[in-house]
């Protein structure tokens, strides 16, 4: 069966090139069509220092059909769902070619972290954050990298992370509505839904809109 032969060849190629810092492993020896891949976050990006794990399912028709890939590691990125880890990348869909390997696909994912395409988003909330306020976006993405992609040490602090920080929302904005007697969770939910991270103090219209949503 050519699919098995090809997968084994690909595993070999990954092992022979440790410099690429790409890992590829079977989830269980019994099933060579379910793998986990990983790579390092590209330097000088908010993903630097993180190790990103990708779930890979190799379909029956591989390599003529693309592998199904999604992030196991939570990533804050316009083309990756912050909830499910689903990836929006052309080579995993229409632009797939049988010459692409699991390794080259993982390298493409690494390149995707390097250069997001906010105009073809998978996660619209994140994409909007990216387009509106890059600095704040970078902060949030770096926080997620630290929290979720940094191996064991950061895990202990996960429970303590502030929900506002987690979504890059301005603390003072949350406090403002908390002072009006609204629940913090509700405020964050509404602000996320409206795609708001901060607010100009003179923008009464938006403030009213938030209030309206909070009262619903």
């Amino acid at each position: 069966m050519s699919r098995a032969k090809r997968i084994m060849k690909e595993m070999e190629a990954v092992r022979d090139d440790p410099e690429a810092n790409i890992d590829l492993e079977f989830v269980s020896e019994a099933d060579i069509h379910h793998l986990k891949g990983s790579f390092l976050g590209p330097p000088e990006t908010p993903y630097e220092g993180g190790k990103f794990i990708v779930d890979i399912e190799v379909p029956m028709e591989y390599p003529f059909k693309p592998p199904k890939m999604k992030f196991d590691t939570k990533v804050y990125h316009p083309n990756i769902s912050s909830v499910t880890g689903a990836i929006c990348l052309d080579i995993l869909k229409n632009a797939w070619s049988p010459v692409i390997t699991l390794k080259s696909a993982l390298i493409s994912l690494q390149a995707l972290l390097q250069s997001p395409e906010p105009n073809d988003p998978q996660d619209a909330e994140v994409a909007q954050h990216y387009l509106r306020d890059r600095e704040s976006f970078n902060k949030t993405a770096a926080l997620w990298t630290k929290l979720y992609a940094n191996g064991g040490d950061a895990n202990s602090s996960k429970g303590n992370v502030d929900q506002a920080d987690l979504y890059g929302i301005d603390q003072s904005l949350v406090t403002e509505f908390e002072n009006q007697g609204f629940e913090k969770d509700k405020i964050i939910e509404v602000l996320r839904r409206l795609g708001l991270k901060s607010l100009d103090p003179n923008d009464n219209e938006t403030a009213n809109k938030i209030l309206e949503e909070l009262l619903k």
Binding site: D55, E57, K65, P66, K68, M69, K70, S81, T84, G85, A86, I87, C88, L92, K93, N94, D120, Q122
Partner: peptide
């Protein structure tokens, strides 16, 4: 069209 690993952005081949 088959879904690829949860991406909701579908492009008809």
């Amino acid at each position: 069209i088959e879904k690829n690993g949860g991406c909701n952005h579908m492009i008809c081949s």
